[in-house]
Amino acid sequence: MADRAEPLAALQGRINDAAFGGTTLMTVPFVAQVGLRVEPGSAAAGRVETALGLELPEVNRMSESGGRRAIWLAPDEWLVVAADGEERSLVALLEEAIAGEGSVVDLSANRTGLELAGPDARTVLATCCSLDFHPRAFGPGQCAQTLIHKAGVLVEQRGDDRYLLLVRPSFAAYVAEWLLDGMLGLKADAAA
């Protein structure tokens, strides 16, 4: 893993400078991500739940146990997320659990993370994403695959005002630019 380049290294200075009033953007360059497809309610799904120590979540939800999270993607598809470096052990664990009745693929290189946190995090998100993140519609533990302008993102709400965005590395600068645009606009408003 020595040769990996952080997808947003070139934007790091501007990302740091955009922080305002406790609202920050942070890169999470590497996240262990394993794509899991298994028939919900099947014996294999049950074995996965036992192995991970969590219930595979329902639509648009996330469940968490021992630093691992299962994020709902589709009716028979989840993204299992863990700290960088855990991908191999996670694949081995899940492959043993499904025992051929489904599919397990290491997708860690497919997405990089951006964490948006702070009192204005939701307002920043609203500047570039049309999904309703108001607490009446979206809250901690919820997730959604949607768009930030033209780029697909997986949004996961990690706390009252904390969001993790998982995006393709080649679209990460595009997404970060839109978030920075929103942050700088709100920062200017706050200073005025």
Binding site: V59, N60, A74, P75, S130, L131, Q145, T146, L147
Partner: peptide, 8 residues
């Protein structure tokens, strides 16, 4: 499956 979303 996911609920109401915008056309794009």
């Amino acid at each position: 499956y996911c609920g109401p979303r915008d056309e794009p």
